[in-house]
Nucleic acid binder design. Structure first.
Lengths: 115, 115
DNA sequence: CCAATTGTACGATGACCTTCGTAGTTTGAC
DNA sequence: GTCAAACTACGAAGGTCATCGTACAATTGG
């Protein structure tokens, strides 16, 4: 069996991803932190929610991951008790070439400037 | 006289512009429409608020222009009874190279796709 | 001065957003 | 089966947001 777990999550199709939703998802510092973390991980299956230390409660963490997933910025799959998160880089790059990279670069630049 | 009108508006300095605020400002369809309009105008003093037909009331229009100005995306100056709006392209490009262009390109791509 | 044009200020409203705590579910390990 | 780990669901509180209408202010043109 290919272990088709019953627990699956709704993701927008590539063509359903909306620019406004992506920008909104990225406009929160906490979510931008998550995206930065996942971007540094590079290609792969991603990281568990708990791998990213956010300064908020678990339920708030869940909320932010959900916003990112529903906007199409990340994908989430269950893996045992954990939930693995990965950037949907190829979808984003195909839809909006250069957008994710310039946001990440902008974030890096701002961090370097602001300290 | 260089007609230094008493009416001036607060703009964030270049170094005060925050990425999160810019992304949030751009995540609204109406404001994105304004930015697209101003970008097509190219360099110059910009356009009056009334030059951009938005499908909302005047007070809502004022609100959106204010959000864009306070985020540092546009500059506004009074010119007679009108208020001229211009993209702060050089500031944005200096702070976040490529960001504005990739957002505008993404918007164009989405419009072409969605129709 | 008078009127028209252009945009502002204010208050209100309903929607959405971030955050939390608590209680529950699913899975893996023993 | 039992227990811990990881995450979710739900409901609530407090804040912000987009929108409007109405009343007001500043400038230009007659």
């Amino acid at each position: 069996m290919s272990t088709a777990s019953a627990r699956t999550l709704d993701h927008p199709e590539r063509t359903e991803i909306r620019l406004e939703a992506v920008l909104h998802a990225l406009s929160d510092p906490m979510r931008l932190q998550v995206v930065r973390f996942l971007a540094e991980l590079g290609e792969g299956e991603g990281a568990a929610c708990s791998a990213i230390e956010l300064a908020v409660s678990k339920s708030t963490t869940t909320h932010h991951f959900r916003v990112l997933r529903e906007a199409g910025v990340i994908s989430q799959v269950y893996r045992g008790t954990a939930k693995m998160n990965a950037l949907r880089r190829s979808d984003l790059d195909a839809l909006f070439p250069g957008l994710l990279d310039s946001v990440l670069d902008a974030d890096t630049a701002q961090r370097r400037r602001t300290g």
